[in-house]
Amino acid sequence: MLGWFHRLGSPKTFFGMSQSWPKTFGLLSLLLLAFGTVWGLLFAPPDYQQGHSVRIMYVHVPAAAVAQSCYLIMAISSAVFLIWNIKLADWAAKSMAPIGASLAFLVLITGAIWGKPTWGTWWVWDARLTSTLVLLMLYLGIIVLRNALEEKGNDGRPCAVLALVGLVNLPIIKYSVDWWFTLHQPASFTLTEKPKMPPEMWIPLLIMAAGYYFFVFSVWTSRIRNEIISRERKTAWAKAWAGSQ
């Protein structure tokens, strides 16, 4: 296991191993997202209270789950970099930040669009909304910090530390609806309890969530591969890759 982990830490090994991942997972995600979108928009029933605006759930809820997962993955990669000094882990964390930021932005925008017909307002300084805004700010802070330090070549460690400090925001987002009185509804879906909605609503939600996760994995590996080539461009194998197509 440890040997496999060390081999995976080699940029060249990872680059060779991951060659087909962006396309394979990208295609799989597009299929799932297309299927889930058609189901969610055309076949899922409207909610008895919210009516058709509940269809926003199929893009908003998975985006929220994945935006937080992206942060967790970024923090784990940062920890691996800090502990074992594996540079690929730092590049993985760097590659995840813009994806997570775009998804956090998407959560806030789709949430605002959902909030207007449901609550009568685009935005409230509610605990769930504010902690999600903090998540976006953390992503942006890490991206800006890295850009500022990159030329000096010591960007990895400060960004990794900031990513780990920001981890404290994840339980705050998750439990904000329990700890504070908020406008935001409780979790639509949990792993431990039976779903409160009918299968014709939660099945497309799960399909969309799987589509989002595969999508992120595809884009993430694609970004890591670009980062590897950008840093290893002087090596013979990177030159061979550039000349191969």
């Binding site: 928009l41 009516g51 926003i56 998407l106 669009i113 207007k116």
Partner: peptide, 15 residues
């Protein structure tokens, strides 16, 4: 969508 179409389709468009 009973008046909610611009919100719903707008959210999908942004996504």
């Amino acid at each position: 969508m009973e008046g909610l179409g611009p919100f719903v389709l707008g959210a999908y468009f942004v996504t």
